[in-house]
């Protein structure tokens, strides 16, 4: 299974990945319409700056995922293929996963009734396309690659 690699040195902090993520998770999948959707689609990746370095951060899809362990309703599942998926219908919005996540990449949705998190763009993966944040990145700071190709 491919994974996301972030090259912090290449990230210029343009936030393009955030926009692309929100559009991908909108109903219309069109930027001009997505901005007017209610509730707003929200993004699952955010560009953060730490000590002068800037980079996009989204779910790491941990093997031993804390969020999956604490989820009382079984909404969060570590799939066989690798990604940690959220079943929105099962989520009760208890926010335990938000607390448990060591990376802070699970967000409460706008209404506070459920959480949202990166699904690696499930629909795109099925079409064998890279996640939206990866294609949106103008500097290729985000790449979607096989683990064996990850350079140190």
């Amino acid at each position: 299974m491919k994974m996301l690699q972030i090259d912090i040195a290449r990230c210029l902090g343009c936030h393009s990945c955030e926009l692309a993520c929100a559009v991908e998770h909108s109903r219309s999948k069109l930027l001009s319409e997505a901005i007017n959707e209610s509730p707003p689609p929200g993004y699952r990746v955010s560009v953060i700056g730490v000590d002068g370095a800037v980079g996009p951060l989204q779910c790491r899809h941990c093997d031993d995922a804390a969020c999956v362990m604490v989820c009382p309703s079984g909404a969060l599942v570590k799939s066989e293929e690798g990604p940690v998926f959220l079943n929105h219908a099962l989520c009760v919005g208890c926010q335990l996963c938000v607390i448990a996540c060591p990376f802070g990449v699970i967000y409460s949705d706008r209404e506070g009734k459920a959480v949202i998190k990166c699904d690696l763009c499930r629909e795109r993966l099925e079409r064998e396309e890279d996640p939206a944040c990866v294609t949106a990145c103008p500097t290729k700071a985000l790449r979607f690659i096989e683990p064996e190709n990850v350079k140190e």
Partner: peptide, 29 residues
């Protein structure tokens, strides 16, 4: 491609050097 969504929507400003600034069209930022 893909071209910058902030520019497409007109939500970036480079007029002064306190910027560049961007407005979040989804209202989170």
């Amino acid at each position: 491609e893909p071209q910058c969504g902030f520019g497409t929507l007109g939500l970036c400003c480079r007029i002064c050097r306190m910027g560049p600034c961007r407005i979040d069209p989804f209202g989170d930022g």
